[in-house]
Design a protein around this nucleic acid. Sequence first.
DNA 1: GAGTCCGTTGCAGATCCTGCAACGCTCATT
DNA 2: AATGAGCGTTGCAGGATCTGCAACGGACTC
Lengths: 253, 253
Amino acid sequence: MSQTVDRALSILPLLAEGPADLGQVADRLGVHKSTALRLLRTLHEHGLVYRQSDQRYRLGARLIALAQEAMENLDIREIAHPHLVRLNEQCGHTVHLAVYEEDEVLYIDKVESRYPVRMYSRIGKPVAITVAAVAKLLLADLPEHERRPLAEKLDYPMYTARSTPNAPAFLRELEKVREQGWATDLGGHEESINCVAAPIRGADGRVVAAMSVSAPNVVVTADELLTLLPLVRRTADGISGEYSGRNTAKGTA
Amino acid sequence: MSQTVDRALSILPLLAEGPADLGQVADRLGVHKSTALRLLRTLHEHGLVYRQSDQRYRLGARLIALAQEAMENLDIREIAHPHLVRLNEQCGHTVHLAVYEEDEVLYIDKVESRYPVRMYSRIGKPVAITVAAVAKLLLADLPEHERRPLAEKLDYPMYTARSTPNAPAFLRELEKVREQGWATDLGGHEESINCVAAPIRGADGRVVAAMSVSAPNVVVTADELLTLLPLVRRTADGISGEYSGRNTAKGTA
DNA sequence: GAGTCCGTTGCAGATCCTGCAACGCTCATT
DNA sequence: AATGAGCGTTGCAGGATCTGCAACGGACTC
């Protein structure tokens, strides 16, 4: 809607790929160098981009700090955290909390496994949306008219042989997940990692977040992990209750 | 430099304080509602702001994802991580990695304590710059003409009775830290928490990052923590060596 | 020491942004 | 049920702001 701002903001994902110099930025934006320079300067003044010693630009520290604040403002995160910690103390595995927003699912909290073998993931990282158990729960709850177009728009990378292969399979899976009220990912993202997940609901019953327990095969088998399902669901329900109970008049997730 | 972009970017820190509606944004920017609307829409298209169900705006998911990518691009982080993990395995305490950038110091990595009592901190969070051990190391290495103005510009909140009280005291502390090549924070941020920190240097000897070990009094006394200093310094030196050794032609921290 | 490459600056033209005013919607009030 | 207030939204005309050009300057190379 606003050309100048639009161009300026387009620089950010571009720099997220790695540092770039003025010429590269100008080229990729399709504007004159002097224009790119002015945009970069403005971004710089706000700390969103940083100029390294070799004069190239990269994303800046304030961007990271802003994102941090953004996450701390999410109320489910705050409410859920102690529950996640308790669950981790009970089962020892990695616990994740994720939300959906505008075609993306991201982890917003995590409690590390207490086993030496840890799964790689990071708070803030977009989730493998077509296979992750938490993603299934969040998408399964979308209204039909959003869910289908989204499913058809997605890519279906075959991380492993068990990854969701395409949109129809995904939609079928979502249907199943919606009915049973929980989800799994059995080696669909990384061959040796399994997850069980449960939804967290707001007062109106809509799914506002999802949580999961993940563990590698070498620690527990998929079957053993599934025995944790009741515990996971109970934890999720506890969070749901607290979240819808004292709803501090803030918006949805 | 660019008015429109400048205004648009000013919205981000504003929303970081919490959700706001159109009128509030327009007021705080000092522009007409229609102008604010167009800016917000542009930010929205890029996913940097999100519109909640109550129509108010807050920071969006893509901002978080961008920040995540920004951190993953930092090469020291990648090099340092395994060293931090090893150190954590050896001593059991919380280990932090921090960098300085444009008047800010922030944590870019963290390995959690294995003791039940954990210190609160978060990756991406700006550090208490006047008291944290890592901040002292990073600022101590700045050239005089940057260090002094910065020190005089800072606020000196008295988190505890041992917090650095003012600029002269801070500059003296930095001088000491620079000479001894390591730093501590003994209850200067939170009464019962102590840290020891060591610098990580690039090939040219400049400090590019700093790492620290933190532990609460209830787990180890300050004196006991200080006995870890040699180990911390050795770890930091190891990272320094690796960082300056195979310098993959990337920029500074 | 000449040449090339890149970032930087000032400027004039025109695009794009701004603020206004009016509209429509929702919600609260009478 | 009707009225009014509050808020977000739209179209428009005037003009401020942004754009691209061309020329400059510094660093590095051959």
